[in-house]
Amino acid sequence: MSFSFPVEAGAVLMFARALGDLDPRWYDEASTAAQVHGGVLAPPTFVASAAHFDPDWPYRPHPGVPWHGSGRGPGFPPPASGSGTSLHAEQHYEYHRPIRPGDVLTVDREPGKRWEKQSARAGTLRFEEEITRFTNQRGELVLTAIRVRVVTERPVEG
């Protein structure tokens, strides 16, 4: 699948704030910190926020669709994961070119490898790899992301 992901200065600033990272490299074009890098850059994990622009992202409420979080009641398990939990096991980024506010990235996602493992704590673990490529408005590949997700049979504490 493919979608467009505009890199907006305000979104970059809010992302940096959510990390408690007030390095001016992420928001102040005039700062020495930004100039050393040829201008303002997006923080290393900013591409996580492409989720906002993913039309099929499951972890965002959609109008008219029941949301599995609490309201009047406690909510319900998301349909995909049964009684267990979908957890993020690994995340890898390869940086090919800088990402800066004003860029418009095209995001292409494809499934990677899949495998299963048995765990005494959590039952059967299903691992799934997802490969995401980010290409900028000049057609340059800027970043490759590999996400490994694991769906557990039972909840896993600590």
């Binding site: 959510a18 906002h52 972890y59 979080g69 398990p77």
Partner: peptide
Amino acid sequence: MYAGASGDFNPLHTDEVYATQVAGYD
């Protein structure tokens, strides 16, 4: 803040009622 900035609104990360009563976490 991170849910809002990243777009990951999975209630496991922000909704303690859901996390404890539905997902089974502390």
